[in-house]
Amino acid sequence: MNVFRLTGDLSHLVAIILLLLKIWKTRSCAGISGKSQVMFALVFTTRYLDLFTNFISPYNSVMKVIYLGCSYATVYMIYMKFKASYDGNHDTFRAEFLIIPVGGLAFLVNHEFTPLEILWTFSIYLESVAILPQLFMITKTGEAETITTHYLFALGLYRALYLINWIWRYYFEGFFDLIAIVAGCVQTILYCDFFYLYITKVLHGKKLSLPA
């Protein structure tokens, strides 16, 4: 465990909790893509199946349980508790266009052709693109609430920090997982345009709105 990995995990945790608190406090999930959140729940579910088979550390297990719990709570709030505020009309990205190709790729390109391993690979690939419905929704409506942009920034930062962690681990431990690294690069690249807007607009006190 190095500092980049730890801050990456914490940034991920901040993002997830920030989103949950925002929905809870405002009693609304307006501007949030339910499809992205369902995909994140699917990502955690398929990746953390090893919670029962492979014990790593108390830290690891606790974080997995928190990520899973928060992710399911978020989906519950969007589709059940605060369903009336869900902006389904603008959440029009076709999730099957991501899930099906990613599933196929996980079958073809993996470390080992076993059910758990294919599901783990699926989760890595799916995570890399799961934010697309959310970004698409912002492009469609042309704006995002500031708190939503903080959520997105923390979520994007997490994988960027993991990239530095992997460089670190390659040098100091001779460790590298090509599947995770390539998917992590794709994931981080998808946030670049958003990072630019966040730094130039939101950090200067302006709301994130796109030109019409």
């Binding site: 090893d50 790593i56 690891n60 990520y67 993991y162 962690n165 992997w166 599947i179 995770a180």
Partner: peptide, 10 residues
């Protein structure tokens, strides 16, 4: 155990 797998990560 395969060293080149990110299974100890989140």
């Amino acid at each position: 155990k395969n060293k080149n797998k990110a299974k100890d990560e989140l």
